[in-house]
């Protein structure tokens, strides 16, 4: 990763000092909030809409996407970049009149960069009860390593 220093200059919020620090995660959280802003718009304070965690070997991203099915979400991962697209339409059922509409239509398309490269082949996405969970294993060179100190 040290050789990719020039890349860090392109992402000030992931400056070298922030590498793997909580600040990096907060930045991603803000990115996610923007990404799922449509879902969040109706939400009151305290609503759970998305989260981002670094568990050491993986980045784990979860997002509330009620009403979206597998076919409504496209995910692509390349190097350290994740792109998510999704859409849900909220149509009035035919022959019905509307009394209340609080659920909003959702449309998002967003790319964002992770603090390290991830192993795109091993990314796992699951969708359960309207919650998307994306598990992104860090690339081998970004995995935490134990360095053994040998006696001289």
């Amino acid at each position: 990763m040290l050789t990719r220093f020039s890349d860090f200059n392109d992402w000030p919020s992931f400056g070298f000092a922030d590498f793997g620090s909580p600040r990096g995660s907060q930045h991603l959280r803000r990115e996610l909030e923007r990404l799922f802003g449509e879902v969040e718009r109706q939400a009151q304070p305290g609503a759970a809409t998305s989260s981002f965690k670094d568990d050491g070997s993986n980045f784990v991203l979860t997002a509330d996407v009620p009403g979206l099915t597998e076919n409504d979400i496209q995910i692509s991962v390349s190097g350290d970049t994740v792109t998510l697209r999704g859409e849900r339409n909220v149509a009035v059922p035919e022959g019905y009149s509307t009394h209340r509409r609080e659920r909003s239509a959702v449309s998002f398309a967003k790319s964002f960069q992770l603090p390290t490269r991830v192993d795109a082949d091993k990314v796992v996405a699951t969708l359960k009860y309207g919650v998307l969970t994306l598990t992104l294993p860090k690339a081998a060179e970004a995995q935490p390593r134990q360095i053994t100190v040998k006696a001289a």
């Binding site: 305290g46 019905y96 509307t98 009394h99 659920r103």
Partner: peptide, 13 residues
């Protein structure tokens, strides 16, 4: 924690 619970309400015949 309380979460937002948005609803749509429609009426048919």
């Amino acid at each position: 924690r309380q979460l937002a619970l948005p609803v749509d309400i429609y009426e048919g015949a």
